[in-house]
């Protein structure tokens, strides 16, 4: 398992060898540093912790600075742990710099980000409800959520019923995006398709965990 932190730069399009247009999201990935290596013996499980984005020392607490000093890396704003299997060797050494070139073109990755916050959104936007009729004498019903359930029996709304509420600003994972472009010099990565969050949003990119969906043969 390998991964890197980055910032979403924006979307654009590139051409593949056949001349087809490929929509891509450009990510400024790294440089990251390995800030800690956790082992089964000392921590109960295997993992590597990486950090991203250098900041002035005054931006961090003494505790954070001390933690980073052990790895002998510059002050970093974001830390991310990458869990490793029990038998898995850490892919990097402590303090090592990680660049975008840990991924290669054609590889599949998962991208994790925080989706754009939509505030308190109605049921039409949040859950794709259809809203009410727009004509036939209707008033104030065009984006209404409709019924929340039956009447006196059961006498309450069932937990989990879809309705209006806070939308977005949640952790979202997009699986199996293809890496279309790697620019090791500028630490740029372009993945096919969209990625959660606003431009400049923090994203975590890891090698695809599940792989492409396997379709069952139908009998």
């Amino acid at each position: 398992m390998k991964g890197i932190l980055g910032r979403k730069v924006g979307m654009t399009q590139l051409f593949d060898e056949q001349g087809n247009v490929v929509p891509v999201t450009v990510i400024q990935a790294g440089p990251c540093y390995v800030t800690q290596i956790k082992t089964k013996e000392t921590d109960g499980y295997n993992a590597v912790q990486i950090g991203f984005e250098e900041v002035p020392e005054r931006k961090l607490t003494r505790g954070e600075l001390g933690h980073l000093k052990r790895a002998n890396v510059p002050p970093l704003r974001h830390l991310q742990e990458i869990r490793l299997g029990d038998q898995e060797e850490p892919p990097w050494t402590l303090g090592q710099q990680i660049r975008a070139d840990i991924f290669s073109e054609g590889e599949r990755v998962d991208v994790i980000g925080r989706s754009k916050g939509r505030g308190f959104a109605g049921a039409v936007k949040r859950h794709g409800f259809r809203g009410g009729p727009k004509t036939h004498g209707q008033s104030d019903r065009w984006r209404a959520p409709g019924s929340r359930g039956a009447g006196t029996t059961p006498g309450h709304t069932f937990p989990g019923t879809k309705g209006p509420g806070r939308m977005g600003n949640k952790r979202v994972t997009v699986l199996n995006l293809e890496v279309v472009l790697v620019d090791p010099e500028r630490n740029l990565l372009a993945v096919k398709g969209a990625v959660p969050g606003p431009r400049t949003g923090l994203v975590f990119i890891r090698s695809a965990r599940k792989g492409p969906r396997k379709y069952k043969a139908r009998g």
Partner: peptide, 11 residues
């Protein structure tokens, strides 16, 4: 910076 980066990717 963002724009300069994006523009550099225009073929």
């Amino acid at each position: 910076m963002t724009n300069a980066l994006m523009n550099s990717l225009i073929p």
